[in-house]
């Protein structure tokens, strides 16, 4: 078998356990797999970032969020699978910007595990949408690609207006810009628990914008599962 990322041949049967339980072999070679940094250890209760041993249980960023009356309660929690190391930056660039869709398979197992661990079947899955323009440009929505990995169906309840690429704005600017999301066709959301799916959690503004729309429509609580915590 050849590695999905580096294309070099490797032996996909890594253990007896895997062989006996007929687990799907890894699509990555051990070298590539090992270069991803999985978030493991003490987490910020709120945003799921890795914390120092002695730090308080909520990180400084999230404390700042919680002080904000408008935004403090928008999100119950975020959990992410990976750190945003240089390797991850390259892989995300290849996947999202070059458009190598199939790379999403490399995230399948850890992403599903994280979903089961932190959320579960009683959460409704809603991927963060792209604007129609961006979707046409990329050809696919990376958040939807992640949502497809999960064992439950996902719901396209949100839509998005076209705006400037976010990465070019500062946190302040992003906070103050109008909410790009609005509701698409949806059933009554009353009392529903919703988990938003996205590729990267950076400042948290995107998922909070989306969460606000869903809460205003009656959702009970909104969390987020993201691939990367930047």
């Amino acid at each position: 078998m050849n590695c999905l990322l580096c294309h070099s041949p490797y032996n996909p049967i890594a253990s007896w356990r895997q062989l006996l339980l007929l687990e799907e072999p890894d699509v990555l070679c051990p070298r590539c797999r090992g270069t991803f940094a999985v978030i493991r250890g003490r987490l910020c209760e709120m945003c799921g970032r890795l914390l120092e041993e002695a730090a308080p249980s909520v990180c400084a960023d999230c404390l700042r969020w919680q002080e904000d009356e408008q935004w403090g309660r928008a999100l119950v929690k975020n959990r992410s699978v990976y750190l945003y190391n240089d390797w991850m930056k390259d892989v995300v660039a290849l996947w999202k910007f070059r458009g190598d869709y199939v790379i999403v398979e490399a995230f399948r197992r850890p992403f599903v595990q994280a979903f089961r661990r932190h959320f579960g079947r009683d959460w409704c899955i809603v991927p963060i949408p792209l604007s129609p323009e961006r979707l046409h440009e990329r050809g696919f929505n990376q958040a939807e690609a992640l949502a497809r990995l999960l064992p439950s169906p996902y719901f396209p309840w949100l839509s998005r207006k076209h705006s400037e690429k976010q990465s070019k704005k500062s946190r302040r600017e992003r906070l103050e810009t109008d909410n790009p999301f609005f509701l698409a066709d949806h059933p009554p959301l009353d009392g529903k628990r919703i988990v938003l799916i996205d590729d990267i959690y950076t400042t948290g503004i995107t998922v909070r914008h989306a969460a606000r729309i869903l809460l205003e429509a009656g959702a009970a609580e909104v969390g987020a599962l993201t691939l990367v915590r930047a």
Binding site: L94, R98, G99, Y101, V102, R138, G139, F140, A145
Partner: peptide
């Protein structure tokens, strides 16, 4: 092995693509 497919938003169907020359645009 160097082809894959994705649900293409442009043509609305499952679209094959070449993984080999991606750097030049899919």
């Amino acid at each position: 092995y160097l082809f894959a497919s994705f649900p293409c938003a442009r043509c609305g169907s499952d679209c094959a693509y070449c993984r080999k020359c991606l750097v030049m645009g899919r």
